[in-house]
C-alpha cells in the first residue's frame, strides 16, 4: 500500500519498507512516473488532485495532515501546512481549520515569485536569508504589491539577502494572523524546507515550532496511516 499526495506543485509518494518510511517526490506534472506499475487498489490518495488518480480510498489533505503529524508529534495542537497554492491551519484540539487559497501572499507561490524575480532557485532563498544583516519592513499584504515594495527596498540600499529576509517576514506575518493561541505549532509542507522562512515564522509566532524530518511527505504518510 502507498500513500500518494498529489498537490498543486509536487507529487509525493510514501510507503513503509521493513518498518521504515520510504518516499519519493517529483514535480506534480510527473506524478504518473511515481505510480507506474502500481495498482490503483494499492493507492490511498490525498491532495488537490486526489480524485484524478485511481485509488482504493481518498481523503482531503486536511485529514491526512492530522494523521501524518500524529506519527511524529502525537500531542500536536496546531498544524500549519504551507503548500504551493494555499496555506492551511488546522487546530487539532477543536477540529477547526482555516484555508487561505484566495491570495498568493502566504503560499509557496509567493516565494516562487520572489525567487523568479531574483533568477535564483527556490532552495537558495533560505541560505540567502541567513546571510542578511538587516531586515527591511515589507508591509504589503498583497503578493503582487509586495514585489514593488521589495524593489523599492533594493533601490533604497538593502541587499538582495536582506530583501529576501524581509519578504520571509512579510510572509510569516501573513500566516501568523491565521494561527490560534497554542503552546506549540507543527509546520509541514514543501515551503518549510526553507530555513529562512522557518526562522521568520519562529520569530513572529513566538511559539515552540516543531518540524518533522521530511515536512513535505507528511500528508502522503497521513493518507497511508489513515487507511492502516
Amino acid at each position: 500500500m502507498i500513500g500518494l499526495d498529489l498537490g498543486s506543485t509536487a507529487a509525493k509518494m510514501v510507503w513503509i519498507e521493513s518498518g521504515e518510511i520510504k518516499f519519493r517526490i517529483t514535480p506534480a506534472h510527473n506524478w504518473k512516473e511515481l505510480v507506474e506499475g502500481i495498482d490503483g487498489d494499492e493507492i490511498i490518495s490525498t491532495g488537490y488532485f486526489r480524485n484524478s488518480v485511481p485509488h482504493r480510498a481518498s481523503l482531503t489533505e486536511l485529514t491526512a495532515a492530522v494523521y501524518g503529524v500524529r506519527h511524529y508529534f502525537p500531542d500536536a495542537e496546531v498544524i500549519v501546512d504551507i503548500g504551493g497554492q494555499d496555506t492551511k491551519v488546522i487546530d487539532v484540539r477543536n477540529n477547526n481549520f482555516i484555508i487561505n487559497d484566495k491570495c498568493s501572499a502566504g503560499t509557496g507561490a509567493f516565494l516562487e515569485f520572489v525567487a523568479n524575480y531574483f533568477r535564483i532557485g527556490l532552495e537558495e532563498l533560505g541560505p540567502m536569508h541567513l546571510n542578511a544583516r538587516r531586515i527591511p519592513d515589507i508591509n504589503n499584504t498583497c503578493g503582487v504589491f509586495a514585489l514593488s515594495e521589495m524593489i523599492s527596498q533594493l533601490v533604497g540600499g538593502y541587499s538582495k539577502e536582506e530583501v529576501i529576509a524581509g519578504m520571509h517576514y512579510a510572509f510569516a506575518r501573513r500566516i501568523s494572523h491565521m494561527v490560534p493561541e497554542a503552546r506549540s505549532i507543527v509546520l509541514i509542507g514543501g515551503t518549510v524546507k526553507n530555513e529562512g522562512m522557518v526562522a521568520a515564522l519562529r520569530n513572529i509566532l513566538e511559539k515552540e515550532v516543531l518540524i518533522p524530518d521530511e515536512p513535505q511527505i507528511i500528508n502522503a504518510l497521513g493518507a497511508l496511516e489513515y487507511y492502516s
Partner: peptide, 17 residues
Amino acid sequence: QQIKLRLEAFREMLDRL
C-alpha cells in the same frame, strides 16, 4: 472546488468525532 474541499474536510472531521 475550494469550497468543496472545505466541505469534504469538515465531513471527515465529523466522522472522526
